[in-house]
């Protein structure tokens, strides 16, 4: 189990940030991803592995339609 935006999320071995975003259908172009409070640059999404117990934030920067 790990946290995604402060909600429990099922963990899988080797899950990367890129796969997580795909799994969640997070396609909005302006998302900031933080793993354990550290910002992950977009070019590292595919190589950043999420570990059991991590705290992941995927913040969608949109406050206005």
């Amino acid at each position: 189990m790990f946290k995604l935006n402060n909600r429990d999320c099922e963990w899988q071995v080797g899950l990367t940030v890129k796969e997580l975003l795909e799994l969640k259908n997070y396609t909005y172009p302006r998302i900031v991803v933080l793993v354990n409070a550290e910002v992950i640059p977009e070019e590292n999404y595919a190589s950043t592995i999420i570990f059991d117990g991590d705290n992941v934030e995927a913040i969608h920067l949109m406050a206005g339609g």
């Binding site: 935006n5 909005y28 995927a58 913040i59 969608h60 949109m62 406050a63 206005g64 339609g65």
Partner: peptide
């Protein structure tokens, strides 16, 4: 009309305002 506040992502997706 959503021109006062559009909070769907902050609330539903980001869970920033629990």
């Amino acid at each position: 009309q959503h021109d006062e506040a559009w909070l769907i992502f902050m609330d539903m997706v980001n869970n920033q305002i629990p």
